[in-house]
Design a protein around this nucleic acid. Structure first.
Length: 562
RNA sequence: GACCCCAUCGUCUAGUCAGGUCCAGGACGUCAGGUUUUCAUCCUGAAAACAGGGGUUCGAAUCCCCUUGGGGUCGCCA
């Protein structure tokens, strides 16, 4: 009895910056499946496209995976992850391997060299489309005899290598999610396996690497289902084992279109067009390199801006880029455990009514039989609700740590200012006061600026709610403000507890026990509006001097108005 | 257009494989009340779906067929 091979799954992204949520879900499922079976999860970089740049920023998704807690056993070495004996894990470093197998197919007559140019093929495709015909490569290369083709190749004439597919029969993928998927052999044409630059195509590299790396389960998005037929043919031709396949459905936008990195580019192009049309005399300010990048981007519809440039431009033209990447959600103040939970549930569920679970649970329970076949729309509101629950579930100390870290990372200027003025321990109080009112870590950022404004710069909102809180009733809000100042002055200690005691006691005797009658005018006086953390926390954080200054100023404002 | 895949509330889904316990359950969102020092919460309640049509069967959300709708793919991208 032979042992079943140890489960080895892999996630194989192309190096293109940050990880988008669809990729994250695929990686999550690959990882969970490997963990469940005590196997290995491999990360492989599919960098066979020389047209794409290869700077290190393109590997930002390594950081994203780490942040999500998806750790790879083999692959690029990064922060304690990676390594392994089946490398190198960058396809661009494995060219000799691919060449060896290409030669093998060539010698066996299972592949051949073809000399058509891209332009010639484009014309043929266009003609087919116009004639409402299905395009299929016509094997024109085979019209030239083999010796001539070898001679051309020796002379260095640019060419590709095509795989010769069977002329008849059917091809079946046994898919763990979808069952058997069969197509007719005539649906496939002789696809390219080696490009003119000598690099293998995706199809070829994937098949060779999965074999050499001992991959047992290929879990990937549905967009690859059709490719799988090609991969099976290659595996058969090369005498490779066939892994188990599982194709998961794509994640879509609310309008049903595939959620993709391009969505950001689309949104940006649209906003930029509007900006240029309405600001003819103004241009987007930037340094030379930035402007050059914009120009290139405008010339080529297929070109996408570097993500840093994209964010700069979005800021300049007032465009909110849709959150697509894991990092977008991280910046927006989502917790990794919430994103993981939500993503996992988008396409898989443990059955019954259970929705909330950890990645640990996923690793124990994930299997293909509960993977959804249909595409799932990405619902930001539900993600937000999940994030809210995740934040509320955090112990206070842990929330403070995460909240501080979030400010330091994404709002460092604000954080430094706050801690300089009020001190690090007061930031803790702010964090604690904000936990209950946060659905994301960023929710309370905008509502924290008033703490740092100069006392005499507070602007009072001119809304009904504000007026009502200040002037309605007898005594009115202004009257309470006047009366509360001495109460605050005489406190021996300025703590959340002493403030609470003083305000409650005042409300008891002067406002029929209705704290709101007193709290709301104070809130307006110190913040300018009706939104702040709990009033006792707010006053403590602000400090006694500022509180009294602001209340007095508010009262002066009343007199000026009367 | 061709090929392939899919189809339960607005959304994610349970139930489908082993037909009856389902006039279809949960969650997000929505709406209506309530609690609360504001915002955010929290509590209670409500509206909300088996795409349509044929079969099979005593019985169909569940099995079969057709139609319709949605998605994916059709690159020297991955």
């Amino acid at each position: 009895m032979s042992q079943p091979p140890i489960v080895r799954t892999r996630f194989a992204p192309s190096p293109s910056g940050h990880l988008h949520v669809g990729g994250a879900r695929t990686a999550l499922f690959c990882w969970a499946y490997a963990r469940k079976h005590g196997g290995k999860f491999i990360l492989r970089i599919e960098d066979t496209d020389q047209k794409r740049s290869h700077d290190i920023a393109k590997l930002a998704f390594l950081e994203d995976l780490k942040w999500l807690g998806i750790e790879w056993d083999e692959g690029p070495v990064f922060q304690g992850c990676g390594g392994g004996d089946a490398g190198p894990y960058f396809q661009s470093q494995r060219l000799d391997l691919y060449h060896k197998y290409i030669e093998q197919l060539l010698e066996e007559g299972k592949a051949y060299r073809a000399f058509e140019t891209t332009e010639e093929l484009d014309v043929a495709r266009k003609q087919a489309r116009e004639g409402k015909k299905n395009y299929r490569y016509d094997r024109a290369a085979l019209d030239t005899d083999a010796d001539t083709r070898e001679k051309w190749a020796d002379e260095g004439k640019p060419h590709v290598v095509r795989f010769r597919v069977p002329d008849e029969g059917t091809n079946t993928v046994h898919d763990e999610v979808r069952g058997d998927v069969t197509i007719d052999a005539t649906e496939l044409d002789d696809f390219v396996i080696q490009k003119a630059d000598g690099y293998p195509t995706y199809h070829f590299a994937v098949v060779v690497d999965d074999e050499l790396m001992g991959v047992t389960h290929v879990i990937r998005a549905e967009e690859h289902l059709k490719n799988t037929h090609k991969h099976i043919l290659l595996q058969e031709a090369l005498g490779f084992r066939q892994p188990v396949f599982a194709h998961i459905s794509v994640i879509t936008n609310p309008d049903g279109s595939k959620m993709s990195k391009r969505d950001k580019d689309k949104a940006l192009r649209k906003a930029y067009r509007v900006f240029v049309e309405s600001n003819r005399e103004k241009s987007v300010a930037g340094d030379e390199a930035f402007n050059a990048a914009i120009a290139r981007w405008q010339e080529d519809r297929d070109c996408q801006l570097d993500w840093l440039d994209a964010e700069d431009l979005a800021l300049s033209v007032g465009c909110h880029l849709p959150e697509i990447n894991v990092d977008d959600f991280r910046r927006a103040g989502y917790l990794p455990e919430a994103l993981i939970n939500y993503l996992a549930l988008l396409g898989w569920n443990p059955g019954g009514d259970l929705e909330k679970f950890t990645s640990d649970f996923l690793c124990k329970n994930f299997d293909f039989d509960r993977v959804q076949k249909s595409p799932a729309k990405f619902d930001r509101e539900k993600l937000r609700a999940f994030n809210h629950d995740a934040i509320q579930a955090l112990p206070a100390d842990e929330f403070v740590r995460i909240y501080r870290n979030y400010w330091q990372t994404y709002f460092s200027g604000l954080y430094d200012l706050f801690t300089q003025r009020r001190g690090g321990h007061v930031f803790d109080i702010l964090a604690r006061a904000n936990q209950a009112r946060s659905k994301t870590l960023s929710d309370t950022i905008n509502e924290s600026y008033f703490f740092l404004e100069a006392d005499d710069k507070i602007q009072y909102e001119k809304t009904k709610a504000v007026r009502k809180a200040l002037v309605n009733g007898e005594p009115c809000g202004y009257d309470h403000l006047e009366a509360i100042i001495p109460e605050l002055r005489k406190l021996l200690e300025w703590t959340v507890e002493t403030i609470e005691k003083a305000l409650k006691s005042y409300a008891e005797t002067h406002a029929d026990g209705k704290l709101g009658k007193v709290a709301q005018p104070i809130r307006i006086a110190v913040s300018g509006g009706t939104i702040s953390p709990a009033i006792f926390d707010t006053l403590f954080i602000l400090g006694r001097e500022s509180v009294i200054n602001r209340i007095e100023r508010c009262l002066a404002h009343r007199n000026a108005n009367v």
